[in-house]
Design a protein around this nucleic acid. Sequence first.
DNA 1: ATAGGGTTAG
Length: 621
Amino acid sequence: MAIQGPEIKFDGYNILLNECVNKRAIMEGQRVHAHMIKTCYLPPVYLSTRLIVLYAKCDCLSYARHVFDEMRERNVVSWTAMISGYSQRGFAHDALHLFVQMLRSDTEPNEFTFASVLTSCTGVSGFELGRQIHSLIVKRNYECHMFVGSSLLDMYAKAGRIYEARGVFECLPERDVVSCTAIVSGYAQLGLDEEALELFRRLQREGMSSNYVTYASVLTALSGLAALDHGKQVHTHVLRCELPFYLVLQNSLIDMYSKCGNLNYARKIFNNMPERTVISWNAILVGYSKHGKGKVVVELFKLMREENKVKPDSVTFLAVLSGCSHGGLEDKGLEIFDEMMNGGDGVEVGIEHYGCVVDLLGRAGRVEEAFALIKKMPFEPTAAIWGSLLGACRVHSNTNIGEFVGRRLVEIEPENAGNYVILSNLYASTGRWEDVRNVRELMMEKAVIKEPGRSWIELDQTLHTFYASDRSHPRREEVHSEVRELLVKFKEAGYVPDQSCVLYDVDEEQKEKILLGHSEKLALAFGLIASSEGVPLRVIKNLRICVDCHNFAKFVSKIHGRQVSIRDKNRFHHIVGGICSCGDYWRTGLRVTGCKMACFAITAILLPVQRWLSAAVELQI
DNA sequence: ATAGGGTTAG
């Protein structure tokens, strides 16, 4: 590009800068900038604003800010350009700070400003501020503006206030792909998977259009439910649509297939990708890690480093470390952690990484070392980290450290009933009945049960959901009598109920009844009666599976010759012939009984027409 | 001249 001379007019600069913005040509932009400074002492507001946009888009925020600070006057557009520069690059604090300064300077924000600044109010911490900004928006009558509305509802959703988000959405006079996607993904990101899918289906019926972002969100919800058949439907559908940014969808599909228990599909998609981002690698690594395939995780990670096209990030290390932990590769995990500590790949060691290593050491029975690591790490240990160590103390019967950790946990996380259970079982194992009573009393006083236990199984494209002691399923009578029959059969084969996870202080018989009501037993029993012999059973559980149900599942696999896979909150358990891929190591889960019941069935994610189309296409993987 | 939704981890 040739710059003619000092006689060039302002609109000439404008055209040049416009080109630079479109091409993200930072070098050329800087030349134009330098030329401008030479020819005019202070450029007009709109030219400086163009420069701000250019620098912000090219990730040179400090240059952008410099231009902004040097401006002799600013208008709403220049303020907004700078604020959205910060917002889009993730500098939420700077964006908000500047927004407040803008208000102080008596510049009236417009719909562009609000849409942009709300992006920086994400998370629970930004929520209060977000609400204040909401009131400004209401006063200025921007609430029904499509861009502002989508941003606003997204802010509420990300702060966990889904009802407020839905309220904003319902008030929008018009809807488009973005606002619809925002609300669907809001539900999905909060783990309200059925709600997300139900809303998606309703909006589809009402004529919403979808793009790759929409399908990515739908796949998130399907991953959460492990709804494999529906996931395949969406897969065939997006293949037919030939959507742009297919890479993002491939990332989602890798995650979906691995969370639905189908690692082979996930791997095929990964292998066939023409290009991969760090998210693609992370998704497949996490997949293998959750399935306990530590060796594959390590091999893939090696490949990733050798290929050297994509840099590992902190999530990569999380996946690799937890892969080593679940796969029983302690030494390899420690080696990788060492490399991290020595700054090998330039990834900062975060508290989550320490958490993985604590888990890994604890699992290997190296409880003292795990404890020592917690004490010397430069972070305040979280409840999750103490909890992981407590689990290790339980498995490896380390009463000394266990007692210390248990007391600590009960202090910092008094609402979590699971902690009291482990602590009291620990006391019980050494005959300290007085302490057992005290802990139980404390539990009754302080603990709250947050999430009811729940399991589901997918058969013939329908998700059958069971809550603890469920009596709502249409075939409940059959299911319950099947569980009772299984109990008798399994006992003859050597099954002994393990009551250590039962919270309540009741007699043996009562405890056995509670155990039998556990939702995964109901789902397994239903799977046995509702599917043909030899069909593998795939059960998903929202919490961690308990020792007893794990054992029960082993008997299902052994006596009935079924492959059983159970995905719990933490990982997959693949059980064949009575042996589980997890090697019988996990932290105890918390059970709840007598809660509300429901039976949720979705039979199709896409509209009938699209379903018919999908059925005609073979999956191209 | 300035604007909104998404994919991995926790």
